[in-house]
Design a protein around this nucleic acid. Structure first.
Lengths: 123, 123, 123, 123
DNA sequence: GTGGTCTAGACCACC
DNA sequence: GTGGTCTAGACCACG
């Protein structure tokens, strides 16, 4: 069963997108594997204190992307291949890195400073 | 006069936020200095193709933060001290780095991998 | 449901202020009670021929003052206690009376004349 | 010379309208008489700490209404007849009283309460 | 010309 | 359907 223990939505960015990112990150970190069972919309809704429709929206988008299979009246499961994992990893990394690097450059930082910032802020 | 040459707002994040970040980044990179004149609402709105009110909102928030002085009927100017620069730099870096590092960690990456990602995506 | 039947905004004073005053007056006259449902932005804006944003601004200020509770996606309701009623009544009366009395005095009228004016103009 | 001693503009209503009302009130209270000299825009501007353009706007509207005569390069003077005084008095009283009475009625007050409020707040 | 503020309209996440 | 927020345009006082 997929865990949402460390999930705490933050303001400003839509919750359903945070759920999607949470699951995709889990796929990349191998915390989530193909075949894993998803908590039902009702259960997860109660667990996170979030409206079921918001959960539904996230699940629906992941299903459209082909990462989830669900049958009406039955449980939902993760279903993806190794290629999906690589694709998702590249996608997430590209978005994260290009954004932060652009910002750092505009602040006038050099690559060496960026590297030391990772050292500083990591843990 | 503060330059907005490389400013091209992107969708999804409020324009006035991007203006604020642009100016703060300029402060950190010493491109913008205390005493510099700000373009007026009308001028900048025409230059960027943005509504004057959006500019106004950004300027107002910067004024509330104590980085801009403005008086009705007169031009607006940057006004901050060295301490502000350090504070802003820390603030921007903290937001950028904690966000990206949290994401990378959740994807299961180690610090060494993060460092090599900087190497890969820089330039 | 709160009524806006006799509401007709007049020029020169901000509409959102007039909405606030209308609601506060209703609280004082017991026409509006704690727990009453507020008309939604859309409904009221259509009813009064006013932009929804103007309604929003009035509601927001009343919420900040603690007289309204509202949650995204749900209806808004009045919520206040007896102490609020007294406070609002004093506030409204003080503003109204000091304003009109200052004007009458400046026109050179005596108290007795003011009293007879009330008699004359009260229906 | 017309006096502006007790003039202290308040927020929310345009200053030029407050100036107009101040002068009209003076006419009604006989503090201002036909033939009286008006302070020059420059002098009054300095006296009240208000922009000359704002003074100009008020004077212009009073001239359009036929209460002021001014010749370029010369001083401005009040010029009106007894009929004007009565008309202005009625106008001011009607506006003041209908406004405050409407407000008091909407708060659920009776005429007797309004009368006692005058007693309370006068002076 | 400047900045300050009010109203207008559109879009979005959410119930 | 609801409320929240961002952008757009107009008007005002002021230098």
């Amino acid at each position: 069963m997929i865990s949402f223990d460390n999930f705490s939505p933050q303001d400003g960015v839509p919750i359903y997108m945070q759920i999607i990112k949470h699951i995709k990150s889990g796929i990349v970190s191998k915390t989530i594997e193909s075949g894993d069972e998803l908590p039902s919309r009702r259960v997860l809704s109660a667990l996170l204190g979030i409206n079921p429709n918001t959960i539904q929206k996230a699940y629906k988008m992941l299903e459209d992307e082909g990462l989830i299979v669900s049958h009406t009246g039955a449980k939902s499961y993760m279903q993806f291949c190794d290629g999906d994992v690589d694709r998702i990893k590249s996608e997430l990394l590209r978005i994260e890195m290009s954004s932060v690097i652009n910002s750092l450059k505009h602040m006038g930082l050099e690559k060496s400073e960026a590297l030391s910032l990772i050292e500083t802020y990591w843990e």
